[in-house]
Design a protein around this nucleic acid. Sequence first.
DNA 1: ACTCGAACCTAGAACGTTATAGGCCACGAG
DNA 2: CTCGTGGCCTATAACGTTCTAGGTTCGAGT
Lengths: 375, 375
Amino acid sequence: MPRTFYVHRYGGLVAARSQSESGRRVTLADVAARAGVSVPLVSIVMRDVAGASPENRARVRRAAEELGYRPDSRARLLRRSRSQLIGVVFGVQHAFHGDLVSGLYPAAEALGYELTLSAVTPHRDERRAVAGLLQDRCEALILLGPELPTSSLGQLAATMPVVVLARSVRHRDVDVVRTDDAAGLHQAVDHLVGLGHRRIAHIDGGRAPGAAERRSGYLTALAGHGLADADLILSGGLTEDDGAGAARALLDLRPLPTAVTVFNDRAATGVLDVLRQNGLAVPGDISVTGYDDSRLARLSHVALTTIRQDAAALTHAAVARVVSRLDHETVDVREQVLAPELIIRQTTGPLTTAAVTAPRGGRPDTPAGRRRSTQ
Amino acid sequence: MPRTFYVHRYGGLVAARSQSESGRRVTLADVAARAGVSVPLVSIVMRDVAGASPENRARVRRAAEELGYRPDSRARLLRRSRSQLIGVVFGVQHAFHGDLVSGLYPAAEALGYELTLSAVTPHRDERRAVAGLLQDRCEALILLGPELPTSSLGQLAATMPVVVLARSVRHRDVDVVRTDDAAGLHQAVDHLVGLGHRRIAHIDGGRAPGAAERRSGYLTALAGHGLADADLILSGGLTEDDGAGAARALLDLRPLPTAVTVFNDRAATGVLDVLRQNGLAVPGDISVTGYDDSRLARLSHVALTTIRQDAAALTHAAVARVVSRLDHETVDVREQVLAPELIIRQTTGPLTTAAVTAPRGGRPDTPAGRRRSTQ
DNA sequence: ACTCGAACCTAGAACGTTATAGGCCACGAG
DNA sequence: CTCGTGGCCTATAACGTTCTAGGTTCGAGT
């Protein structure tokens, strides 16, 4: 069954004029009167369904155009049982959520759904964001990296399909689409070990979504390389400042690690900054990896080696899962885990002898960044 | 007249259960039947308006609670003539837009309005974002830094109140709320001149909203200090990469400027990075200012001297303007310009003699960042 | 006893759309 | 000639809420 879309661009000057003059909204009844047909027939024409003659179709279209008619989604949704609307909760702070939202729009459109956004801000918590969406009569919810307790998510999921993106939740009713974060950190560590590194630290994300998985991925990877007792975890967080703070702590370690895997790209940029400000070359003295492959990491002057979370694949899977649930298909697995991908850029490099012996704050032969200054 | 709010938190487990069991949505009629009263009375109670006895009020509330009733905003808005809904178009990329959205929520709520968000993404342009909002029956539009041509904005404004935030638009029907960007750059230049700087460059924002104003603010400020022919404008942009590229161009200038004002904070961080990677100390060798006072600038390891755009004031003014228009109040000025504020942090400092003579790439006495490493 | 007003409550209509059921007409098959 | 049958169209009834215009009761003032 082909789905019908109701995408209307806002029209030309004529439409605008007629609407502003009357003051009242243009309705199907207005169009019907102008075209000399019944209201339901106009509805039929506007929805592009069978049941109208070509002549009337043309007449109605013209009348609608002249009046600047625009369908009222409120009324439409009220009448139709289904709203074809998916609510999305995202954090206005998180760059990666921006990438996810960008991916959700086309994914939803491809399956005939629309999106309603609700932002989490410093003064608007997730409960309010969700409450706002519920009033909008959306049929399902996609939550980006929610920090709500599992029990709350479960309550919500008892009411309507709920898909959690980019966080691991173990609950009977909650669907999860996420990247295999443990595997991601495993790849990062493998990469570093392959470059010769042995003292590899990890700056974690505290209680942030995914932090636990990344921590354990780091640990098992180390163990896999026989470095189980060389683990070195510093508590960080998800902001630049958290990374910067952890980097300062890292500088006090003896011997200094030669590589560090950081919870995410944002924190990693904070780490980079502090390391370089303290005279260390990256990757000459110390290699750094991030996580997310956000726009931040891709910037040419940052060029962060990182783990890509495939935003397009994640969002596509999330919407597909929502639609499956709404169509009452039986879904075999509740949790869908996508493989991450290592993106090697310029903040990781081979272990150098200088790095092994260089004391903290010492002026290495190659001053920070010089080697990349021509790039 | 006091406004009524319809904020409902999603309820407890009971509510969820009853709703999922029946399959059908719980309506006022269900609550009315359970409480043994009429539908309008339930409506009265739910809206917290006068006209119900305390006993019935309690009874209805209990019934609603037990059934997990949640008002249907679609139906509500259909019935009410006013939708009390403001559409907001924002760029998912821009950090500052996040700050603005954060401010819009409480500002709208304070005046009894709700917000619908529509994101601009790399694959979803402003026209689509606007078209999506129009279907949602919002009464007015707030556009954050739109890049639509003035004529399109004008067409839109003929249909409904339109407030443009953080961009200057000259059109009869379009309201504008923005920061006085020229004054902002004036302040930055005054600050730098006060510190002894004479060779001050500007990295501009190209065709981005506000770029032209900031450029001219820079020029008039220089002229005011008798430095009219010392102007030095490099073409930049609004991303970190744009800033980084401009900074590389800046390094080729002879003599090297001792200070640079950058279009925004994002670009400024790119500038900082390139300067430091090339062995220059900030602010020892060169002072840098940003614009926006975004979260980025506030980070302790960046500590960027910048111009604050008061997001709270901007958003409050924008919503107030929308409401004025909707209430058909006559508005005297179409453009509302707020004063910016200079925030002095640690990327600007007094002119040092070293900086005046230091050749490019030379190793200054104080290596980059050392002086701040203990902060 | 009658009126009046206030407080409380309800029936019914309305918002703009879509689903359902049926009417009308022309046409082909029995 | 009758009986579907299919194409086109319309009247009517929903969807869930709120507004309007009453209606009832009760107590106080004449």
